[in-house]
Amino acid sequence: MSEYKIVKLDGGHAFSLEGRAMNVSNEPMDHVTFLDQYEISTADLSTFNVLVVTDFIDQEHLYEQKQVIENFLNEGKIVIANTHIFRPWLPGAGLFMPKEIKSHADYLMEPASEGTFYEGVDMMELAYRKGVSGFYARGSHPVVNKESEVILQYTDGTPIVFIDRTATKGTVVAASCRDFLTYATGENSTQLIAPQFLAWLDKELLRLKGAQA
């Protein structure tokens, strides 16, 4: 039985109809509950312990509702941001800065810590699709707290995915890359990301439970 109960904000936009376009996978997400983005302040979030924010979410609104997000985190829960943040609605993360690109190799990445959801993922397969690089991430969010754990970075050390456990009583995953949950299928090692991410969620939720006890 999984610990995670995931709620993902739905942008209500054209691409959300079929989860198509830029997603790696169009697999159904039975383990995820979708919530209209404008219901974040009125919906009962008490049954969820993971909130996922991706592209196409109104960040002006998220910023107006930042207390909802902070409260969610302070209940010992997890917020995942897979987007480019331009309003300070997420504790522990700075605002998005695009990567300066002089060559396609500037998009190359490397894991920055062991045993995370990138275990076994070939970094070249993550950076390139059909010979084109830059699909996974095109910039970064500055780390606010130096205790944050960077788990994926560009080869020049710029963080792409980091985890903050100090800004609130919960866990923030700030990620300037594509939606972890969609990397579930595909023909290469990147399909490991979604299942390993879900396993990581379980581990992290148990850790948070332990910290609260």
Binding site: G11, H13, D55, F56, I57, D58, Q59, F86
Partner: peptide, 9 residues
């Protein structure tokens, strides 16, 4: 303006 990141940029 939707308020989402691509439009903001």
């Amino acid at each position: 303006y939707s308020g989402h990141a691509p439009h903001f940029v």
